[in-house]
Structure formats: structure tokens, C-alpha cells
Design a protein around this nucleic acid. Structure first.
Length: 413
RNA sequence: GGAGGGAUCGCAUAGUGGUCUAGUGCGGGCGCCUGCUAAGCGCUUACGCCGAGAAAUCGGCGUCGAGGGUUCGAAUCCCUCUCCCUCCGCCA
């Protein structure tokens, strides 16, 4: 969330940012509500001051005057509560300001490829898409998924399930042992406030699953739970940066993407992801973003799969982000680059929502931390890439060398 | 699921309608004293918002888990919710 004071003092900048994102947040309405709120607040404070004074005198005249004041104070409080609620709801729907270095753009077509690694493999046969390979090898069962849960669900069997587990283990080992992240096991059902903190609510409610009876919500990404690890805390001097990594299932309704990517395992309602998350000081967050992207890229490099890194333009960075890099892995069977990671610096946007601060010195003022999140990586798409890149002419799949020790075999057949 | 107990200024505690402008101890900070250390003495010790100011700062309002209510007046009384603890039941 943006500070209302910031919107007040930088109205033009906020307008430009909202436009650059193709967003429609009602900044002018917010500003007029803010003026209204402050006017009423001043009046209310005067009335309360008067009440305080009257309370000292216990005679009947004071009581009578107090009774009148009580009514005025109450109705003014109700009025302010109303504008506060409206204002707060609108503020929660204003997107973050992109950094000045983020390229201007109108759509994802304006994202910029900033580097790539590896070359797509040359095949001397026509590479098959993973859904065909998966069914032939009996390691992905779409029918069973549909039987159990309907469309956009699948079952991984045998070596398919083992391969996914090996990938998860490999990624967690890399991030914890070499990249310095703390492994976490997280709740995947969370309370509403957690999703407000991570900025999935109120704006993106229609992409979430929830249990109505208990008001538990299923996380669309581990980022939600990780953001809230330090909710309402002031982190002591010297504790930053903090690196966390988690493997969790993720749940998304994909209402907005109805009819898109319906084949294969690219876009399901439930999928596994390894997520990296950092809490940093404002001074270091951009440098930490570069490191985080590199940590994600390292997964691709060790799997020896071609990938490219894109810097997202203003229209395509996510709601909470000030700056985002996507990593796309090559998938020769479906013949496309698959988004396997998105790494974002959210600045103090989530920290303000979740009230996460730190102190630089024991006696210095508490400041909001910066938060960063990045997939490291999203499993189904990596699975697709591995299967399609490592397929052989006879329909078997080679195991990437880095995973052999995790799987105990060199082939899936 | 049932029965109880609890949440107060960093920590520990006091506070059952006005004297709470929330006390005390510990811890922290500043200073004094003491030939070292320890002890002692004095002062100090939160956050948010609104307003004024170039700023240091000043004034006001709010905050005793959260939100409502009763009252001229609420940390204190009532209601709802959240979290923590104890016991019983059930369960991987």
C-alpha cells in the first residue's frame, strides 16, 4: 500500500504510475476523501477536547452539556469511520509505483529480454509435447486427475512423481546449502489479513480458493505466508537481510485465464512451487533482487536447460512490485518459452500492509523493510521443460545429470 | 467439541467508574559520585494521527489484545471477536 501522505505530496507521480500500469485506481477520489477525513478529524478533536474539559466539572450543567456533546461526537465518529473504511479500501487497491528504470510499455510484448543462456537443442526427430510423452510413459495421468477433481487437475505417477520430488529436493538443497536461505514449512491455509498483507486481497479475491465456514484461504503462492512471518514486528538492528525458502502447493482459480493453456500441466488449479523470499533494508533491495534472480537462474543452469531473463515493463509488473524479472525456460515440445520464475522487489509496499519494520540502531526510529519474492522455481513448468528437453527418439527421457543422485536412475522409460 | 484462566508502556507487575496526565521494579539512555570493579544517587525512557513551523520543536487527539456499547466520564462495567495457557473428549 502507498502512504496516503505520499499520494498527497506526489499526486502527479502516482497518476503517471497508475496510467503506466493500465490501472484504474481512483486517485482523485482518494484525495478528496482524505481532505474530507482530515477536516472532520479536526472538528472531532475539538469536540473531544471540550468533553475532556467538561468531565472535570461534575455539576448538573456540565453533565447536561456533556450529554449534548456525546451525541455530536458519536455522529461525527460514525461519519469519519465511514470515510476511513472507504478510503482504506480504495488505498488497498492502488498498485505500487514502478521504479524509474522500469521500461515503459503497454503490454507484455514490451518486456525486454536482457540476457539468455544456452541454446535450444537441435532434434533429429520431432520433439513431442509433454502431455504426449507423459501419457506414453504413464507418468502423467490427465484422466485420473479429471476423475478425481475435474479439469485442470492431473496425477503424476511413478517416475513423474519422483522426478517432481527430486526437483523440489534439488532446489531446496541448492537454496539452503549454497544460497543462504532458511528452509521453512508453512501454513497453506491462511487468514484473510495475511492476504491483505501480501496484497492479494482485496483486489484479487476472485483468483483464490477459500473455506467459507472458517474463513481460511488457500495460498496462491508461498509468498503470502512468507510475507506474514514477521507481520507486526520490528526487526532488531543487524537482523537484515533475511532469506527464506519454502516448498508449498499453490492454489489458483484461474478464472481470468479460462480456456487458456488447457492442455498439459502448464496451468492447473493446484501446483507445487519453491519460493524464495527476502526481507531487506531499503538501501540493499535492488542489489538483493539481482542476487535473487541469479539464484533462480542457477537452477536452470544446473539443469542445463536454455533460459532467458526478461525485465518486465510497467504494464506487466505485478500489483505490489516496483521492478520484476521473469525467467523463461525453453520447452521444445510445446515450442514455447515457459515462465518458470518471477522475481520482484516490492519495496515497502507489502511491509506497510503487513506492518513489518526494522531498526537500524537500537535507538533509531523503526522503518519499513523492503520485501522481495521470487520463484525458485515453479515445478510443473520445470517438469515440462525437463521432460521435453531430455526426451530421446525412442520416447524415453534422460535424467538431467544434476538429478541422478536424487533419482537413482539415468532414464525414465 | 466441552470446561476454565489470561492478554496493561522493551520485560515483569499494580490498578474493580473521576485523584490514571497509567504507578512500581527490572532493563535501556544521560548525568553525578566513587582511586579499579561493583554498588549508590539524580534525571530520563512508547507509538500513531491532526495542526503550526525552514527546522529543532511545540500544541491537540487517540492508543491498556481488536471492535462495538453503557456513562457527563471507561484500563476498570456489558457485548462480539482474535490470540495464548490449563484440563477433558476426539484424532494423524
Amino acid at each position: 500500500m502507498l502512504d496516503i501522505k505520499f499520494i498527497r505530496d506526489n499526486t502527479d507521480k502516482v497518476h503517471r504510475a497508475v496510467n503506466a500500469r493500465n490501472d484504474t485506481a481512483p486517485i482523485d477520489e482518494i484525495l478528496s476523501l482524505d481532505i474530507q477525513r482530515r477536516q472532520n478529524l479536526r472538528r472531532l478533536e475539538e469536540l473531544r477536547r471540550e468533553r475532556k474539559r467538561l468531565t472535570k466539572g461534575k455539576d448538573e450543567a456540565s453533565r447536561h452539556a456533556g450529554r449534548i456533546l456525546r451525541g455530536q461526537i458519536k455522529s461525527l465518529e460514525d461519519c469519519i469511520r465511514g470515510t476511513d473504511e472507504k478510503l482504506n479500501d480504495l488505498l488497498l487497491r492502488v498498485p505500487n509505483i514502478p521504479q524509474d528504470c522500469v521500461p515503459e510499455g503497454k503490454s507484455e510484448d514490451d518486456n525486454i529480454t536482457i540476457r539468455s543462456h544456452g541454446r535450444p537443442r537441435e532434434f533429429d526427430f520431432t520433439p513431442l509435447p509433454h502431455w504426449e510423452l507423459g501419457e506414453k510413459l504413464n507418468i502423467i495421468d490427465f484422466e485420473a486427475g479429471a476423475r478425481i477433481s475435474g479439469s485442470r487437475f492431473y496425477v503424476l505417477k511413478g517416475a513423474g512423481a519422483t522426478l517432481q520430488r527430486a526437483l523440489i529436493d534439488f532446489m531446496l538443497d541448492l537454496h539452503t546449502r549454497e544460497n543462504g536461505y532458511i528452509e521453512t514449512y508453512l501454513p497453506i491455509m491462511v487468514r484473510r489479513e495475511a492476504l491483505v498483507g501480501s496484497s492479494n486481497l482485496p483486489k484479487f479475491a476472485d483468483n483464490l480458493y477459500r473455506d467459507v465456514e472458517e474463513d481460511f484461504w488457500f495460498i496462491p503462492t508461498a509468498e503470502v505466508a512468507l510475507t506474514n512471518i514477521h507481520r507486526d514486528q520490528i526487526l532488531p538492528p543487524g537482523s537484515l537481510p533475511l532469506y527464506y525458502v519454502a516448498h508449498t502447493p499453490c492454489f489458483r482459480r484461474e478464472k481470468m485465464s479460462a480456456g487458456k493453456d488447457v492442455r498439459g500441466i502448464k496451468r492447473g488449479h493446484q501446483f507445487e512451487k519453491v519460493e524464495m523470499y527476502k526481507f531487506t533494508t531499503p538501501e540493499t533491495s535492488n542489489a538483493e533482487l539481482e542476487k535473487m534472480v541469479n539464484d533462480a537462474e542457477e537452477v536452470c543452469r544446473r539443469l542445463e536447460i536454455p533460459y532467458r531473463v526478461k525485465e518486465l515493463c510497467t504494464a506487466d509488473i505485478s500489483f505490489a512490485s516496483t521492478r520484476t524479472y521473469d525467467i523463461e525456460m525453453w520447452a521444445p515440445g510445446c515450442n514455447e518459452w515457459l515462465e518458470v520464475s518471477s522475481c520482484s522487489n516490492c519495496g515497502d509496499f507489502q511491509a506497510r500492509r503487513a506492518n513489518i519494520r526494522y531498526r537500524n540502531q537500537p535507538d533509531s526510529k523503526a522503518e519499513y523493510v523492503h520485501t522481495l519474492n521470487g520463484s525458485g522455481l515453479a515445478l510443473p513448468r520445470v517438469l515440462i521443460s525437463v521432460i521435453e528437453n531430455y526426451q530421446c527418439a525412442d520416447g524415453t527421457i534422460e535424467i538431467p545429470p544434476i538429478l541422478e543422485s536424487y533419482i537413482g536412475a539415468g532414464f525414465i522409460s
